[in-house]
């Protein structure tokens, strides 16, 4: 008997009588999602910038990042600022200083954005870049992770991730340090 059969047989024999699947319903609350999202993102080390046009985004990023290193983008319309991230070997992104990506939506309770690989071109991009900028339409905010998964539904993606702030660690004596292995900063433009 293969290990597969052995394990499945043991599990089947030992599992308790079938219990019905529980459900959970999140209570709906009146909340200012934009305010909550911005507050939480700041609290976890990110920066929330509320803007009205893409021109403002370009202006902000130019001021901050022009001339500081390689900038790549998967957002159209930023040609005079960034190169378009094409389908390449992921290792080729190792020297990226700033990556600019769009997000499907943001989650107010934890400051996260949901991105999938078709928005990233390469999965590694938001991790390998030294700094991350995210473009997120204001109306695409949801309250909690339950709402987030309602929104994702049965979408088909090869890879998707919630990103909540810059990479961080507190492994040394619980001292919080931003910039462990992933991006050292995260700026979310709420458009």
């Amino acid at each position: 008997m293969s290990s597969r059969e052995k394990i499945l047989a043991a599990v089947k024999k030992n599992q308790p009588a079938l219990e019905v699947m529980a459900t959970y319903t999140q209570p709906e609350r009146e909340e200012d999602l934009l305010q909550q999202y911005s507050t939480v993102l700041q609290a976890i080390g990110g920066t929330a910038v509320i803007v009205n046009t893409m021109a403002e985004v370009t202006h902000y990023l130019k001021e901050m990042w022009m001339g500081k290193g390689r900038i790549v983008s998967t957002v159209p319309g930023l040609q005079d600022l960034a190169e378009i991230a094409g389908e390449t070997d992921p290792h080729q992104f190792e020297n990226v200083e700033l990556a600019i990506v769009p997000a499907h939506f943001g989650v107010a309770e934890n400051g996260a954005v949901w991105v999938t690989e078709e928005l990233l071109q390469q999965r590694v991009l938001p991790f390998i870049t030294q700094n991350l900028a995210v473009i997120l339409p204001k109306e695409n905010l949801v309250a909690t992770m339950h709402h987030a998964y309602d929104r994702i539904g049965n979408a088909s993606y090869g890879f998707g991730t919630f990103i909540a702030g810059p990479s961080k660690t507190a492994d040394i004596e619980q001292s919080l340090v931003l910039g462990a292995h992933g991006s050292k900063s995260m700026t979310v433009f709420l458009l």
Binding site: Y24, Q26, P90, A112, Q122, M145, S167
Partner: peptide
């Protein structure tokens, strides 16, 4: 996942969620 991701990091470190919650569905 909505239930578990809300509980996991709040219980572990008091953060609302880990920085990265990555969903791997197929190889690149």
């Amino acid at each position: 996942l909505g239930i578990y991701l809300r509980l996991l990091t709040r219980s572990a470190t008091g953060q609302p969620q880990t920085t990265y919650s990555s969903h791997f569905r197929s190889p690149r």
